[in-house]
């Protein structure tokens, strides 16, 4: 448990969050491990948690008919993975595949949702941090959408 708390407190995502909330978060966290090719979650499944990747690379994929899945984004050491647990209907929107072996902390989303409802200050702290991640993801997606390196259309 102390080990988990140390990992969480040293992660920039939780920077300055305070001991009380850190205890709550630690209570919701567990170590997880995925072999290469395993899925951390699949599109349409209940999003019951989010991940703090400690080691390894995870690919967010979209499946399309008649072709191999399209990789939208990769996340790796130190990255936060998943915010579907926070937003209704709490379902994963992508497949999350471990590219190699992946070690991560999984934080129980259902548990945290309850705690946030009870304690809006905690809810605000978490929401603020996730909003930053979501905004960065959105900006990157927009840039990706522009396909800036594409050859000119005739």
């Amino acid at each position: 448990m102390e080990n988990l708390e140390k990992i969480l407190s040293e992660h920039p995502f939780f920077d300055g969050i305070g001991k009380t909330y850190l205890d709550i978060l630690t209570g919701c966290a567990r170590n997880v491990h995925f072999e290469a090719g395993a899925y951390l979650g699949r599109e349409g499944e209940d999003a019951t948690s989010f991940f703090l990747i400690r080691k390894g690379k995870v690919a967010l994929e979209i499946r399309t008919p008649q072709r191999p899945p399209l990789v939208i984004l990769t996340l790796e050491d130190g990255d936060i993975l998943g915010f579907s647990w926070l937003v209704p209907p709490h379902l994963w929107r992508f497949d999350m595949r471990a590219v190699g072996s992946v070690r991560a902390l999984a934080l129980d989303g259902r548990c945290l949702r309850g705690k946030c409802e009870e304690n809006h200050d905690l809810g605000y702290e978490l929401l603020k941090r996730f909003a930053y991640v979501v905004d960065n993801r959105l900006q990157a997606t927009r840039l990706q959408l522009l396909d800036v390196y594409a050859a000119a259309r005739a």
Partner: peptide, 23 residues
Amino acid sequence: TTVDHGDMRWRGRVGVVTTLFRY
């Protein structure tokens, strides 16, 4: 390095160049 559009064979990063600043 990173690429905007990845595929299943690619084992490197996928994401626009600004996503590299996290690392």
